[in-house]
Design a protein around this nucleic acid. Structure first.
Lengths: 222, 222
DNA sequence: CTGTGACCGGGGAAAAATCCCCTTTTTCCA
DNA sequence: TGGAAAAAGGGGATTTTTCCCCGGTCACAG
C-alpha cells in the first residue's frame, strides 16, 4: 500500500502561527508509525518560504495557510506554481467561505481542509495527494459542486474583478468614497458602480456589512 | 524544584480549534520529561466546558481562548471565578490589543500569552502559575504598565460601558442606527451619543472604522 | 454590421450618518 | 442630602451613503 517505503514524503508548512504549525506536525506524526511523512521545515509567510526554499530540499507537499503577513496564501500558491510546479499544495485555512475556497480551487491546489481537522483528515489528505489525487473537505466539495451546477445558470458569480477587490479593501478603511475614487483614479460615480455591483451580487445592505464580508473572506485584515 | 513530584498538575484546554488544542498539548508535552503536567480534557467553548466540568476531575490550570462560539473567553472566565475560584486561568489568544488584555487582567487571570508562543513560554507560564505566580507575555506586561502609568493622567480610558459594548456589536451589522435604537430600547439620539463617545475616545472617523476596531478586539466576529 | 455585456461616468434625490450645541433624568458619593 | 457627573434625549444642519435612471465607449460574438 505504501508507495515510498524507504523515502518518506517530504512536507513543508507555511503558516504564521507557531501553534498551528506545531499542531499540524503533531497531527501528522500521530499514527504515522511507518515514518511515512517527514516535515522538512516551516515558514511563517510566503516571503519566508521563498527564502527557505532556496537553501533547502524541495518538499513534495506544502501545507499552506491563507491569511499571512507579507505574502498571503493566494500569492504564495501562484508563485509556487510558477517556480516550483512540482510541489503539491494542501490548503489548511480558517476560511470556509466560498470566495476563499473557489479562489484556491481555481489556482489548482490539491486539497482544502478547514482548521478544525482531525487526525484522520490530514492523513487521508496526505495519502490522496501523495499518490497523485486530490482531497477536499466536505465544505470545499460542496462549494465546488454547487459552483459546477449553476455556473451557467442564473446564479450570480461570486467572482470579483481586480478593481472590485481593490475597492472592497479600501471600503474597509475610514476613507469616504470620494477619497477612494481619488486613490483609485476613477470617478466617484465609478466607485458607486463598484459598490452597487457588490451590493447586488452579495446582498449587502450597507457599507459595514460589505466590510465585514471582506474581513470574513480575508480580503481585509483589521 | 518540582513542587509535585508525584501528582502532576492537572490542565484543561478551552479553545474552539482542534488544531490549537493539539498544538498546545504538543507544546506542553515537549520537554516535559518528568510528566509534571497532565492534560485532563479539552472543551470547545465555555458552554462545553461547563458541561464537562460537572463530570470530570477539576483541573488546576485552565488554558483559555477568547474568541469562541456559544460563550466567549470573558464570560467563561467570569463564570469560572464564580463557581470554581480555585482554578487558575492562563489566557492564550490571537488578540494582542489593549482592550482584550486589559479586560482579562481586570478579570484576574493568572497569565496572558499570544498564540505565537514557543515551548519555553508555555512552560515558564505553567511553572509560574502552578507555584502561585503570574506570567504575562511582553506585550501584556507592556499594556499593563502603560495603563498603570497614566491611569490618573489625562489619558482616555479604554474602558467601555456595557451599553457601549452592546451598541458596538450591533454597529457591526447592517442595521441602521434607528433599528439599533429600537433593539436597545433607547432613543436614536442616545445611540448617537454612544457613537460620538466612541468616536471621540478612539478617534474613529466613521462607522466602518469603528466596526473594524470591534472585530480587532474580538467584540464582534464577522 | 449589429447586438450584447462590461466598464466608466453623470444627475439628482432620498436616506443615513455625522456633527454641534443644548436640556432633562438618573446615579452616586462626599 | 446637595450637587457634580454620567447617562439619556433633543433640534437642526451638513456630509456621506445609497438608490434609480441615464448615456457613452469598447471588445467580441453572431
Amino acid at each position: 500500500m505504501n508507495i515510498h517505503p524507504f523515502s518518506p514524503i517530504k512536507i513543508a508548512i507555511v503558516d504564521d502561527h507557531n501553534l498551528f504549525r506545531k499542531g499540524l506536525i503533531k497531527l501528522i506524526n500521530l499514527g504515522d508509525t511507518h515514518r511515512r511523512y517527514s516535515v522538512l521545515f516551516e515558514a511563517e509567510s510566503g516571503l519566508d518560504l521563498k527564502e527557505k526554499l532556496n537553501k533547502r530540499t524541495i518538499p513534495d507537499i506544502m501545507l499552506m495557510d491563507i491569511d499571512m503577513p507579507d505574502m498571503d496564501g493566494y500569492e504564495t500558491v501562484s508563485w509556487l506554481h510558477h517556480f516550483h510546479p512540482g510541489i503539491r499544495i494542501l490548503v489548511i485555512s480558517m476560511f470556509e467561505n466560498e470566495e476563499a475556497i473557489l479562489r484556491m480551487l481555481q489556482l489548482g491546489v490539491r486539497g482544502y481542509l478547514s482548521k478544525d481537522i482531525e487526525v484522520e483528515d490530514i492523513h487521508h489528505a496526505l495519502e490522496a495527494i501523495s499518490s497523485g489525487g486530490y482531497y477536499y473537505s466536505e465544505r470545499a466539495t460542496e462549494v465546488r459542486d454547487q459552483k459546477l451546477n449553476n455556473s451557467s445558470a442564473g446564479q450570480q458569480a461570486q467572482n470579483m474583478s481586480e478593481r472590485e477587490r481593490e475597492f472592497l479593501k479600501l471600503a474597509c478603511t475610514d476613507m469616504t468614497y470620494v477619497q477612494i475614487a481619488d486613490v483609485m483614479n476613477v470617478s466617484v460615480k465609478t466607485i458607486d458602480g463598484y459598490r452597487e455591483a457588490l451590493f447586488q451580487r452579495f446582498g449587502f445592505k450597507n457599507r459595514v456589512a460589505m466590510a465585514m464580508y471582506a474581513v470574513k473572506i480575508g480580503i481585509y485584515t483589521p
